[in-house]
Design a protein around this nucleic acid. Sequence first.
DNA 1: TATTTTTGCTAACGCTGTTATAAAAAATAA
DNA 2: TTATTTTTTATAACAGCGTTAGCAAAAATA
Lengths: 203, 203
Amino acid sequence: MGITDRKIRQKEEVRASILDAAWEMVVTEGWQSFSIRKIADAIEYSVPVIYSHFENKDAILLEFNRKGFKLLADSLSAAKKGKASPADEIRAMGRAYWQFAFTNKEYYQLMFGLGIPTCDTVSKIPAMQEFNEVITSSIVAMAAETKKPVVDPFLKYQSFWSMLHGLVSINMVVPEDKMTHGAGMPERVLEDVLCSFIRGIEG
Amino acid sequence: MGITDRKIRQKEEVRASILDAAWEMVVTEGWQSFSIRKIADAIEYSVPVIYSHFENKDAILLEFNRKGFKLLADSLSAAKKGKASPADEIRAMGRAYWQFAFTNKEYYQLMFGLGIPTCDTVSKIPAMQEFNEVITSSIVAMAAETKKPVVDPFLKYQSFWSMLHGLVSINMVVPEDKMTHGAGMPERVLEDVLCSFIRGIEG
DNA sequence: TATTTTTGCTAACGCTGTTATAAAAAATAA
DNA sequence: TTATTTTTTATAACAGCGTTAGCAAAAATA
């Protein structure tokens, strides 16, 4: 049945146009102007059409969350590749995390700003697990090398993420031009934080 | 003029009742049900009365922001008092920050969750400066003791706050009963993070 | 061509923040 | 005490939001 095929294809196109229009609006006008009605307007369909593609507004946000975490997990994974030591991997991931946050402000704000992922959402976003693993594996590797103390990898994973997230979220709201301490300051804080984290594992 | 006096007094009472009713609702039902109309309902006045006390919704939030930062600054200040060393002061403040966040979830969510304070809001909230200073002074004191390297106090202040905020915000969304790693885990992460921060200054 | 299925729109419900307008109450002046 | 002015408060509207029920139009099937 070619007809059914075409219908599926067309439906998929509308779905994609919803996500495209929504993302376009978020990037140009920010999350505060993310609205079902505006999306409907942009794709030149009536509002209920959107509800035949997504259960509700949150379902659209969930979709962006998925994309965001996939992008982040892939970025960290790529940053690790080819590094000489676990410590270097961790440093590289820290910088990649920072870079992801600021080259994808909208994603970061959704993923960690509006409401940090709860336990339920973890199951809906497989890439969150990836994110966890790509970090933890480097920590485990490093702990294995420096066999001084027995570090809890999950504890260190949480510390690592905490430091990075705190750093990012505090710097994200400050407009570039309003930085009291000259440019490059946040990056120095990042390096400072990474440095003390590495030393914390080395013991 | 006793009449004008009484009017001012009564107006002040209504203003207080607005804040009381609003806070009551936030504590029992969360920020998502914070609404001008519901407040009006609770204080048994019509909606426009609220607008004769506060310019808009954000002005009410600003008021809570002020209270929250005052409370936090005072908590940190009290935690410092009587500690033997700057390092102890920092540890005490870290724990006090953590405790503030979880015994005042609603305040913390407003202050750092919904939208972290921007540069403009700093000028509207004097207690934010207090918060900055009470932390920085301990860092400076500690750097003076261990005269090894010349640490940038503002950099260390940002690191400190970043770590704490990240830690708190990641743990705040996880429901108590859903902690994968037994109770007391977040506190261990806190101590871990504090420890590596202190060492980062000691050099 | 007639019938059934699919698709999409209009219009509504109930909620939000904010404000213009008008009525009621209180304070002042005569 | 009565008339006038000022202050206080409420009603009702505007414009926006997410969501959904009901119905008309279009498309596919018989």
